[in-house]
């Protein structure tokens, strides 16, 4: 269901498997027979272009049959409950359900009732977004080699972000340190319990950072307009622009789970800079999802994840 269910060995194994999938994605015939005859249903109650496409491509490149169902086309619109939708689909005997839902815990709920179907959490409310975090970890591993002692500065709407929450959990498991940067209005209470440092001043958090991870300002999740005065002011205080990137130094990676709001949390020149890993994250996302599908669907692999939550709020287009 989430990063919380994984051990460091589990994560390293998935990263290694993901790394070896990269090659399939880069050659001219992008297809391997690994999941031939398997059925995967992408059940997305929240809009998401990139996560859904990433899962769909991952399944198809491994020869699985992938079916997409989105909230607008599902029977939910006609009043069916989440459980009924889940049971109906499970009765069609897919090997795996990929679920994205706006409410935290919905994937765990489905998993509890659908014992015979593997479920991947592709993001449940503000809870977790495990596949995004695995993707990020693979990207970091490729650039920095290891996680131990690295400092990730996570900036933006922490309160509504499942990515932030999953990273806080992953940091404990993999041994990297997180500095959270946000205005008080976008920070949840008691967040320091996760063992991270908390800053309200972006500039103070930058020195020594190995990674600056920007989160999207999620207008659709902000309940009222009171969180910050204006977009321009937010960009000044919490946006990543050239001057701040210079302060961070040449070694510092820039990451963003997408979709980016250029000019809000990140400026265009930074987003397109050499240190930006945003597109690597997207490429690795397909490989990591291929690794997860292979691991979960193929029989006899030791049970590890009941599901993966994707915690990312940033994925909805």
């Amino acid at each position: 269901m989430g990063i919380a269910d994984l051990s460091s060995d589990d994560i390293m194994w998935l990263l290694q498997l993901g790394e070896s999938m990269l090659d399939i994605n880069r050659r001219s015939i992008k297809k391997a027979p690994t999941l031939r005859g398997k059925t995967i249903i992408n059940l997305f109650f929240e809009n998401s272009t990139r996560t859904r496409t990433s899962f769909e491509i991952a399944g198809k490149r491994l020869s699985a049959d992938v079916i997409n169902i989105s909230a607008s086309t599902s029977a939910t619109k006609k009043g069916e409950s989440l459980l009924d939708t889940g049971q109906t689909l499970a009765a069609m005997q897919p090997h795996l359900l990929v679920v994205r839902h706006g409410l935290a815990g919905s994937c765990a709920f489905l998993a509890e009732y659908l014992q015979n179907t593997a479920i991947i959490n592709a993001g449940d409310g503000s809870h977790e977004h495990p596949t995004q975090i695995l993707t990020d970890l693979l990207t970091i591993q490729q650039s920095l080699g290891s996680f131990e002692g690295k400092i990730m500065t996570l900036v933006g709407d922490i309160a509504h972000s499942r990515v932030a929450r999953s990273h806080l959990l992953a940091a404990k498991i993999m041994g990297y340190h997180i500095r959270l940067v946000a205005p008080k209005t976008l920070l949840p209470l008691h967040v320091a319990r996760y063992g991270c440092s908390v800053y309200h001043d972006f500039d103070a958090a930058i020195p020594g950072s190995d990674i600056i991870y920007m989160l999207r300002v999620q207008n659709e999740r902000l309940t009222s307009a009171c969180c910050f005065p204006s977009i321009r002011e937010y960009h000044e205080a919490y946006g990543l622009h050239r001057a701040r990137q210079r302060m961070a130094g040449d070694h510092c990676l820039i990451m963003h789970p997408g979709p980016m709001n250029r000019g809000v949390e990140i400026s265009s020149d930074v987003a397109d800079s050499l240190n930006s890993r945003v597109l690597h994250q997207v490429e690795n996302g397909v490989s990591i999802r291929m690794a997860l599908l292979t691991h979960l669907i193929n029989a006899n692999n030791p049970p590890m994840l009941a599901h993966n939550n994707e915690d990312e709020d940033d994925d909805e287009d």
Binding site: A32, H295, A299, N301, P302
Partner: peptide, 12 residues
């Protein structure tokens, strides 16, 4: 590994 014909029967 991803092309084996016994992926269903034995672990990776």
């Amino acid at each position: 590994s991803f092309y084996r014909d016994d992926l269903d029967r034995s672990p990776l």
